[in-house]
Nucleic acid binder design. Structure first.
Length: 269
DNA sequence: ATGACGGAAGTTTTCCGA
């Protein structure tokens, strides 16, 4: 079973690239962020023609998230229960956990995985109102996930976190010190999510040095690998024995008119 | 110190992202 997350920075512009990527790299569940369109404009038919079901939570101009999947999502929830938010940032669904690995035979085929796809707030600048909103949002997410993990022990939280774990996720740690995505406050909240019993799937496996998931459009950021790792896949303890690999697919970043983010993929047994 | 690049809204510049 494969799951992936990708901030596509406008589905209107990037739909062909998403379909091309799914054709080349089929996954069971793909979480999309920054759709930048309303629900009435979501291209369900195009995904269906490609063999995928889809559920969306759109919004005009900014934000917007979706789950694209081979089997339909069940028990879909939009945004964070218990946290009032005007912005469309989270969509969750339950999917059959299709096990193909005999060593995972202790996991029954009918078992399922709860997938939370999220577009975390950017935060703009430490100390700003948007930064305070980001911290409040993170606390709201954590409070909800604590209970969600009780009902759904097999849980994946993936998306554009807009937070680096530490300096190894940053091409220029000195230049970015205490800047947005790299502050102690943001990293504390990310650590607090891990402390709920989640693991950063990327670091469960060997990775190339300077592995990033986002590169600035400006100043040849991708070509110079001036990037940050801010897109993450976190998996619960119950899923860790099933994890087989996690990688960042830089290929779509080489497209014409690419998203500034690359997809991150998790393979489960 | 600021902009760069890219998208959306919407008409010409402005906001926002990361």
């Amino acid at each position: 079973m494969k799951l992936a997350t990708w901030n596509i920075n406008s589905l209107t512009v990037r739909l062909p690239q998403v379909l091309d990527w799914l054709a080349a790299s089929p996954v069971d569940v793909l979480a999309l962020q920054e759709l930048k369109l309303t629900d009435d404009k979501f291209p369900h038919a195009a995904f269906q023609a490609a063999g995928y079901a889809s559920v969306c939570f759109g919004q005009k101009t900014y934000n917007g998230v979706a789950l694209i999947s081979k089997s339909p999502a069940q028990d879909v929830v939009r945004n964070i229960p218990g946290f009032d938010d005007d912005l469309a940032r989270v969509i969750s669904g339950t999917f059959a956990l299709s096990t193909t690995d005999a060593s995972a035979s202790n996991v029954a085929a009918q078992d399922s995985v709860r997938v939370v796809g999220a577009y975390f707030p950017n935060g703009q600048e430490p100390g700003s109102d948007k930064f305070e909103y980001k911290l409040a949002w993170l606390q709201g997410l954590r409070a909800w996930l604590r209970t969600e993990l009780v009902t759904h022990p097999r849980l994946v939280l993936m998306g554009d976190f807009n937070i680096t774990f530490d300096d190894t996720d940053v091409w220029d740690p000195e230049g970015m010190r205490d800047q947005i995505h790299c502050t102690d406050e943001e990293r504390y909240e990310l650590g607090a999510l891990i402390a709920l019993g989640l693991a950063d799937a990327h670091r469960l496996f060997p990775q190339a040095a300077k592995s990033y998931s986002w590169w600035d459009y400006r100043d040849f950021g991708f070509k110079r690998n001036h990037g940050m790792r801010i897109d993450h896949i976190l998996i619960s303890q119950a899923l860790q024995p099933l994890a087989r690999g996690c990688w960042i697919d830089k290929a779509p970043r080489k497209n014409e008119r690419p998203s500034d983010h690359a997809p991150v993929v998790l393979e489960l047994a």
